[in-house]
């Protein structure tokens, strides 16, 4: 090829050859083994994980005889006692209210005004009496015998007079076995460390 040769002579004879080259069918990639190509998400592993999580959570629910929801208004004191909790009628005394079997029966705001006159809580007595009647009816129908046990779950800052008032009122409602629910000392230390 000389320098004087016209430029048109340098073009290929077929001017569309490059377009054909660019539009040619692409070569397939390398050969893939069977199963190597992702055709869909495999959910089996995720199902396994979910099932394990679900079983763990349900098991945690079922093996907890006395569930105490620790909060700012209900934080039982810690104790070195090691006696396990036995089922009984629950009286919960938070820093705001008194509850029987998780049902509020009196608030401490209204109670403090009336308590000046009497160390007896009528609303609590009514709720406990109803509960006793239910338990005795269950006993009559073949259920567990009524043993007169009451479990008091109280906030650690509960005044002593309120605690004794609750116990006295329970005694008036035919309860004769008093139990206090407290946190195990090492658990409270762990909880405070977590907070």
């Amino acid at each position: 090829m000389s320098a004087n040769e016209p430029l048109s002579d340098l073009l290929p004879a077929d001017a569309h050859a490059f377009d054909r080259y660019a539009g040619r069918p692409k070569r397939r990639g390398k050969f893939k083994l069977p199963g190597e190509e992702v055709t869909g998400l495999n959910l089996t592993a995720m199902m396994d994980m979910m099932t394990i999580l679900l079983v763990f959570l349900v098991k945690s629910y079922s093996t907890d005889p006395e569930r105490v929801q620790v909060s700012d208004t209900l934080h039982p004191p810690s104790s070195t006692s090691s006696d396990e909790v036995l089922p009984a009628v629950n009286i919960t005394v938070t820093s705001e209210a008194i509850m029987v079997e998780e049902i509020p029966v009196a608030t401490l705001d209204t109670l403090s005004a009336n308590q000046q006159e009497s160390a007896f809580i009528p609303a609590l007595s009514d709720a406990l009496t109803r509960r006793v009647e239910e338990l005795k009816e269950l006993e009559r129908l073949g259920g567990a015998p009524f043993d007169g046990a009451v479990l008091v779950v109280a906030h650690k800052d509960t005044p002593y007079d309120l605690l004794t008032t609750v116990l006295y009122t329970a005694g008036q409602a035919q309860f004769s076995q008093y139990r206090l629910l407290v946190m195990k000392a090492e658990d409270k230390a762990a909880l405070e460390a977590a907070e």
Binding site: S60, D64, E66, V68, V70, P76, S79, S81, S82, D83, E84, V85, L86, L151, T164, L167, Y168, G171, S176, Q177, Y178, R179, L180, L181, V182, M183, K184, D187, K188, L191
Partner: peptide, 12 residues
């Protein structure tokens, strides 16, 4: 989940 225990009282 906290571990709880009980303290028995004698009836006053």
């Amino acid at each position: 989940v906290i571990e709880v225990c009980r303290i028995d009282l004698l009836a006053p």
